[in-house]
Design a protein around this nucleic acid. Structure first.
Length: 211
DNA sequence: AGCCTTTGACCAGCG
DNA sequence: TCGCTGGTCAAAGGC
């Protein structure tokens, strides 16, 4: 019963999205779906760690020298890698994500109730940045937007989370922000490859709809 | 002493 | 071209 509901809802969402995308661009969804399939079911021949399939989701990953360019204040185009996290009750700071960040600024965004905080990876050669915005309607929820990519090795330490973000983003986009419904767990296998572990059969069936 | 946070200023993108 | 706004810098202070 529960599985049927999930299947029905996912099919409805996909159907609506497909129609919308067809109107805008006839082939966009099919391309996205095939990409989602590649992420969810990476080819067995892929190397040790899963590769992110959407380079446009990441900002330029070229490494910087340890001397960050001074007086260079180029506005980066926002990488749409957005993650929603919840703080524990009573915790007013943005929750940790397991990586080491240094806060380099905060700004009150026009029309926003809370400040937006800007973080940079603590490692000097690393290009990764993170913006955290407290959600107005849900004070315990934070929207974390990641930019750049970790060239410092932290990413490897936390590769599972990075892959999750990618899967979350792609599937979420394809299904019309469905990603809060399910998050497959990535499991490191003995041969250093990753595979998805689904918490329930119904979740797995939803993912099958995208493949 | 060194690292981190705060905060005002600067600068570039965009409308 | 210009003003607004968001992203970043860097000095100062705290821990």
């Amino acid at each position: 019963m529960k599985q049927d509901v999930c299947r029905y809802l996912a099919a409805e969402i996909l159907s609506s999205y497909d129609k919308a995308m067809s109107l805008l661009n006839g082939t966009a969804l099919s391309g996205m779906m095939s990409k989602s399939k590649e992420i969810i079911n990476p080819a067995p021949s892929s190397s040790t760690a899963p590769q992110l399939e959407f380079p446009q989701l990441l900002a330029d990953s070229s490494t910087k020298s340890c001397d960050r360019p001074s007086k260079l204040r180029k506005r980066k185009t926002l990488a749409p890698r957005t993650e929603y996290v919840e703080a524990r009750p009573g915790e007013e700071v943005s929750p940790k994500d397991g990586l080491n960040w240094r806060k380099y600024g905060q700004k009150l965004i026009l029309g926003a109730k809370y400040h937006r905080e800007y973080f940079q990876c603590v490692y000097c050669h690393c290009d990764a940045t993170k913006m955290v915005q407290q959600i107005e309607t849900e004070p315990l929820s934070f929207e974390a937007t990641y930019g750049g990519s970790h060239s410092c090795g932290q990413e490897n330490k936390n590769q599972n989370e990075e892959v999750l973000v990618a899967v979350e983003t792609q599937v979420g986009r394809a299904a019309g922000q469905l990603y809060e419904c399910y998050i497959p767990e990535m499991v490191l296998t003995q041969n250093n490859s990753y595979k998805t572990k689904y918490p329930s059969d119904s979740t797995y069936e939803i993912l099958q709809l995208f493949s």
